[in-house]
Design a protein around this nucleic acid. Structure first.
Lengths: 161, 161
DNA sequence: TATGGGAGCTACAACGACTGTAGGTTCAAG
DNA sequence: CTTGAACCTACAGTCGTTGTAGCTCCCATA
């Protein structure tokens, strides 16, 4: 597909340049290749990867979509569409709409959670653990203001780089 | 520690009952035991786990805190506090406050994302992929309305049970 | 031309918080 | 005594990376 790297006068980037230009980690790029999100690039005589402009663009797209929170599966579908530029964009629309729905659900759940946590803190008498409102609420479901809260999905304390 | 299971007239639950009563999966309970969040329970002659009321309460606490989105590390700290009921609840407060801050940051990022995705959909002309606003925004960072968006953290499409 | 150091290579393990599977054992009802 | 649900261990898989170990390669300077 992409023989850009074999054509002279076309930019040829080593993996580190791709990483720097897109803000992706080198390992992540290799991971994307391993799962087929990026095609296998050309190699130097010494077995090192060499990328062309199209690969750089493709990775830029992936990175940007990841920043938007799209899961890799959705990104794969979106990339398939960019490969068929004459097709209708209804499917792309649908993917974005689905993602937006997910984002809104998430916001709703987090806002309910925010209220609950805020109430916990407000009503805490700052005494001992035995009297601690926060601990008591967690110990006893009956003490929740919003008895119907649903579980919030995994919340890793990951600092976004 | 917990010899409740060895005392007659105290409820003795098999793991499945604990799972049903707390809404946790059996494997998850064993996982919590494996990481030291739940103590090793007594066993029957046939090597099956038997739990007492205190274990049930502890697991209920864990489940509830998980539903609130607390990471297991924070839950571990909170559990340590419930074991020292006379201690000050300042630390518990601090954990809740930290979590609340994280929840709010998350809400903020998701709301920015919501706006961006909404704008994408609004301005989509519903034509071909080549003209698709959504695809174009993802292809080209310059086209973002909010040029300074930060990456949203991992968003698994996991249906909360 | 030798050398040094940064960049690249593969392969694999770890993260968090589970979930699922395979292949076996135990328990309680009928 | 038999059946089948529930239990057991051990391990692989999920998602999207990130980190590590132990190499090799490439390029600029001396």
């Amino acid at each position: 597909m992409t023989d850009a790297a074999t054509i002279p006068n076309t930019p040829r980037y080593p993996i580190g340049d791709l990483a720097r230009q897109t803000g992706t980690k080198v390992q992540t790029i290799r991971y994307y290749e391993s799962i087929g999100l990026l095609p296998e690039p050309a190699r130097t005589a010494g077995n090192q990867r060499v990328y062309g402009q199209d690969q750089l663009d493709r990775l830029g797209f992936i990175k940007h979509a990841r920043d938007f929170g799209f899961p890799l599966d959705a990104i794969r579908e979106l990339l398939d569409m960019t490969d068929r530029p004459a097709a209708s964009c209804v499917e792309a629309d649908e993917i974005v709409r689905r993602h937006l729905g997910e984002v809104r659900r998430r916001i709703g759940r987090l806002q309910a959670l925010e209220g609950e946590l805020g109430r916990m803190l407000e009503s805490c008498s700052h005494g001992t653990v035995a009297d601690c409102r926060a601990i008591n609420v967690l110990s006893d479901h009956e003490k929740c203001c919003d008895a119907s809260h649903e579980p919030v999905e995994t919340m890793p304390y990951r600092a976004p780089d």
